[in-house]
Nucleic acid binder design. Sequence first.
DNA 1: ATGTATGCAAACGGTTTGCACGGTC
DNA 2: GACCGTGCAAACCGTTTGCATACAT
Lengths: 149, 149
Amino acid sequence: MGCLAVDKRLADFEDICREKGLKITHQRLEIYRELLSATDHPSVEAVFQRVRQRIPTISIDTVYRTLAMLEQSGMIHRIQTMEGLARYESECGLHHHLICNKCHEVVDFTWELFDSLEPPPAVKSWGVSQGKNIVITGVCQQCLEREQK
Amino acid sequence: MGCLAVDKRLADFEDICREKGLKITHQRLEIYRELLSATDHPSVEAVFQRVRQRIPTISIDTVYRTLAMLEQSGMIHRIQTMEGLARYESECGLHHHLICNKCHEVVDFTWELFDSLEPPPAVKSWGVSQGKNIVITGVCQQCLEREQK
DNA sequence: ATGTATGCAAACGGTTTGCACGGTC
DNA sequence: GACCGTGCAAACCGTTTGCATACAT
């Protein structure tokens, strides 16, 4: 999953750590590996539960700290959802999000036409833009089917 | 401010309350009035501080409950920010948001060309879309100037 | 050997909830 | 007078932090 193979990105992770003087620990590797193979956009709690199966002694604090560290290094992204909790993704390519109002699942989609569009002049006069992201909210197919049970 | 005059929207508020059997209280009126005249996108705490000047005995719980009620009735919108707190706006017209990564201020902008665009097919097959919102993040002019002090 | 990362536990901040009183209808 | 809304306080939940130990370098 993601824009590069998992192995390549784990190697990059080690390079970035060495470069920044960060230590390559068992916990950090497993947390990053978990996020690289995740297709949903897991919450901190979800990452914790998954990694815990391989490292039963891991604490949720370490998951919080590691995810924050990975985000600061630009290796993963944080998404703040309407539920009020943070979700993470390892996807680094240009993309947007579909969020279901019922099950709160997050799905990626791409929209190249939009990406190539020039924003209106008001944006330029506001300041310097660094990210341009669409969030489409609605109800996903599974929830629609579940509703008309 | 907003797509309708403040007085008109306060009258609508009373109609909607009567319709739904909700009581028109002093607190609810002042909270809604405050949001109608706000140009920033205030947090619950900010609304509380402002309304408190006119109703010194008001509690923050009431502000939370009233804002939730107004949102459920479709009279205002909640925005979940990256800071992890909720912000509210009374604007009901189609618009998008500029968010400064430094001061976290939220500014509205419109983009009619985008609004008229048909989303890619993947969106239709995902489910039913209800909202389509752009968030552009970056650094606003004031923060840029403050930086190069 | 040095110093950062971890795990534990406690604190934190925004938000929600249970309850008795007060105000609206 | 009936009942919903309010204010107070306490609970709640996701997240952050201080500290002593464990581990990577």
